[in-house]
Nucleic acid binder design. Structure first.
Lengths: 219, 219
DNA sequence: CCAAAAGTGTTAGTGATACACCCATGT
DNA sequence: ACATGGGTGTATCACTAACACTTTTGG
């Protein structure tokens, strides 16, 4: 359990930014959706198949690319720590996983984009079950806790973490155990729902009455 | 203080969706930013100047427009309840403010986009000071509270609301009062910061230690 | 003096955080 | 028997939500 939060980067073979690492990307075809385009590009570099994909933001400043005006509609995917074969396509010198916390200098505005993505992911972590995408179907609570620690980049108290998970009520006990990381067997869990769930809690919000009343009749 | 949450719609003059109401929009020029394009289009219909603009999402499904594949990078702006002169441009039959809670049938996927925008706005309301954009510089607490009620579409307890605002510590007392909506004078406040502030609280998150400790050295 | 909106405090419940020891197993 | 990571409970504090009366003014 000494993993890391990683991002897949490709090394550019051509100018501009020749030799720099950058986010994988490419052009959207006229009759494919943005999601299809993102998946296609991802597949060119990995053999990833089922992934969580989310639109991040559209970056479109005029000077992003010295050659021409380029709009980037950025998506991010989360894949669990299983192994994928990386296959550099011909346009690219290399493909590699890099630690999010130890990045090389990136081409274009990609460092900014990555930073934006990390913030988004951290936010999502607190009110959804995105974390589920970074583990195999069955996992132990210490493993899940570790995912949170890696993304949030700080220690989490395991007792509080377990309590929180219990309250959220999103996990179910498989009857199995794992001894992957310890001699004492750890219970294996899975997420009750395969999709990503939004947790409805009442945090930090402006006043959420228990029994909402209608305001102004019709509305 | 019997206002409403409104959205600016334009009525289409031409097919497809002739006669339907739709969100104002247009094409981005080759050498303007998305924000500039959004502002330009907004200015064609109103005389709005200083506005809060935020990128919402990029909608790009293949069948959004029957004529061709169109990508829409949606932005939303918030303007305070002051009056703007609306000026329909020639491509458009009419321009009008519509209640968000009483919309006509909209062209394309614009109903979906609006719904998405409302959700975003509601979320932002709870952890930022976006509300400030919908009022003039100086305002009373009941007015601000009303903005929250309109956006969230539910009643808010005014005592709790005042307490919350006090804790957030984003308002400052002007020495003035207003009797616009009542005989008893209400104190006028203004936001301490003219920009929109993100409130750092600890809601609903997974465990935020008061004094964060470093995890794994360097990170 | 009446109507109308502004303004004000307290209590109970829930969720967040901090914290230390025992347990099951493999070696 | 010991080393390693898994698993557990409690007390404090902060925030949320519910709730009703007094104050200031204009008419």
């Amino acid at each position: 359990m000494q993993e890391d939060l990683k991002v897949l980067l490709v090394q550019r073979r051509v100018a501009p930014f020749e030799g720099f690492w950058s986010l994988p990307g490419g052009f959207v075809k006229m009759n494919e959706t943005l999601e299809q385009a993102a998946l296609r590009k991802l597949k060119e570099k990995t053999n990833v198949d089922q992934v969580y994909l989310e639109q991040l933001y559209t970056f479109a400043d005029l000077e992003r690319d010295p050659r021409a005006r380029v709009l980037t509609i950025a998506y991010y995917a989360l894949v669990s720590s299983e192994h994928f074969t990386l296959k550099p396509s011909e346009a690219v010198a290399d493909v590699k996983w890099h630690s999010m916390y130890d990045l090389p200098e990136l081409a274009f505005d990609h460092a900014y984009i990555l930073d934006y993505a990390l913030q988004r992911l951290r936010n999502k972590l607190s009110y959804t079950t995105v974390g589920s995408q970074l583990l195999p179907e069955k996992f132990t609570l210490p493993e899940l806790c570790r995912i949170y620690e890696l993304i949030l980049n700080r220690e989490i108290d395991k007792r509080n973490f377990r309590k929180k998970m219990a309250i959220m009520d999103v996990l179910e006990d498989t009857e199995e155990t794992s001894q992957k990381y310890s001699k004492k067997p750890a219970k294996l869990y899975r997420f009750k729902h395969s999709e990503i769930i939004e947790l409805s809690q009442s945090p930090h919000t402006i006043i959420q009455p228990k029994t909402p009343r209608s305001l102004q009749g019709e509305r």
